[in-house]
Design a binder for these strands. Sequence first.
DNA 1: CTGAAAGCGCTTACAG
DNA 2: CTGAAAGCGCTTACAG
Lengths: 335, 335
Amino acid sequence: MKSKITLKELAKLLNVSVSTVSKALHDSPEISPKTSERVKELASLHNYRPNPVAVNLKKSKTGTIGVVIPNISNSFFARVLSGMEAEAQKHDQQIITYISNESIEREKQICDMLTSGLVDGVLVAVSEETQKKQDYDHLFALLDYEIPVVIYDRINLGLPADKIGVDDEKSFYDATKYFRAKGIEKIGLASAIHHVGIGQLRIKGYERALQNESLALMATSTKATDLKRKIKELITQKKVEALLCTDFESAIMANRVAYEEKINIPEDLKLIGYISKDIAEFLTPSLSYIEQHPKELGINAVEILNNRLDGRYESGKFEEKIISTTLVHLESTRF
Amino acid sequence: MKSKITLKELAKLLNVSVSTVSKALHDSPEISPKTSERVKELASLHNYRPNPVAVNLKKSKTGTIGVVIPNISNSFFARVLSGMEAEAQKHDQQIITYISNESIEREKQICDMLTSGLVDGVLVAVSEETQKKQDYDHLFALLDYEIPVVIYDRINLGLPADKIGVDDEKSFYDATKYFRAKGIEKIGLASAIHHVGIGQLRIKGYERALQNESLALMATSTKATDLKRKIKELITQKKVEALLCTDFESAIMANRVAYEEKINIPEDLKLIGYISKDIAEFLTPSLSYIEQHPKELGINAVEILNNRLDGRYESGKFEEKIISTTLVHLESTRF
DNA sequence: CTGAAAGCGCTTACAG
DNA sequence: CTGAAAGCGCTTACAG
């Protein structure tokens, strides 16, 4: 039971002052080698660890990064978090996790708490509800308190903050062009997130690639039953030969509808989804997907925050970094 | 730009002492109503928030809980985390997340950091590697430093700590009995986690329900290709009519093999898997699963930790709580 | 009812 | 080379 020893106790045991002990442990050149050694020996004997709370108070920082995640069950965000954790670890920073559950109410509570100075900076993916209402006051509050904010993933909103995202538009532009090049005429799109920024960008990429907007064949709804009906229509009546899905829900629904309607993938219908690798690979058939490199996104978010904290960016100017997605072909796009 | 104001500054503006301000803000009866009101008014005008680092130093605590997660991509753990976050929130505690990636090395690093007093307590699901090596020194170190530990989910190990888990054995016992009651003779089991505690418990439940051990038909391997081969053998040669899968990997593999071998689920093969609701529902066909109530598990973990921290448990005696699983029938067990 | 003082555990400029 | 002092921002027992 080696309950934690303090500098003061160490000093007493060694018959030196607290300052001497502190300096010795920090390899200050002010301290004589002998003293330094004595101090270190006793410190390691007692397994001395400086109290991080005291150190942080002294240094006026927290050593901590707040991360706001809209939905942790979404494995994309889980992977982003793991990237953040890995990068923070390198800088001896701790990641405090907050889950907004796509609720603006919760997001506000979180930001309000954070203004008290619990963290040195915050990484946030704005909730769907917040995007719909376009109410960003709570984020501005953070900025007001001089707490740096990095917006990640859902960056398509007008906030004066550093951002790190993914080339959502280009990904679907490229995917659509891919089907075109393969000679497919009827290319459809399904979306349960057409109302939020990233959904809109993906749709925009699709439409831009089609050139002629009248070619667009879209099934969009946030309600599962409606979405299902619309996808079914697209597949069975409009006879689309390829379908791009902007999100997990629509991808899985498309797969489901094909299964129920006995439509063979990829023979009768090619499918591409914006879903995670670990799910894509295990579906039957496996589903071609757009890899967003979530871990890199998380790493970058922390890097950008630290650049900001360490003053490596000009204040008033904001960084915006885009990570390239990759289209990974699995069985569902086999020709 | 309302950069944070301190007690001292507030006191100066009001021409009173720091102690008076502090007491007023805490509704101390020592302070006169008038003073109290003046103080509060100015405080709210300046949006005063006590510096949490200073408060924590004073109170000798951190207000923080460390959570060690073996694998965040596993949506079970993601959901556990969300339960923990929700419960911590209620007590104004922050969740610091650490991801061990099933590595004992990383787990040791994390525990070592935590002994310095970054958190008031830790919630840990021990990594697979740690279980294999049965090396728990780093966890004992935490205990040595009087940092309470709650083991969650993977509790089948001899550690003197509070625990919260799931009735792994019973779940598979019940599932096996269920198939028995339906008149199924050949009930198989597939596992990629037969070497770790929870896997062993699930297998034990299965074997106990079979009574006659010679009836056991098992496909176990941590290597995907081997597991696939063995499952294929179970399905095509041993002709099992029902298969219990102890984990995501084996469940998805079984589904995959059935798909490739053109074996119909549920007509020719019933399937039950230990996988998450959000995946189970979307597979084709949807996969009957054992619901582990991860969010409740997370909530309970934090509750237990707080009981321990607040001295509501006798020291030296440990709490062990088991959450009941639920077998949820979807398409893959339709008779 | 108000305030001075001590202290939580550190770090660091300054004096000797 | 060592130590006393001030201070990070609070809280709280104690004195007046």
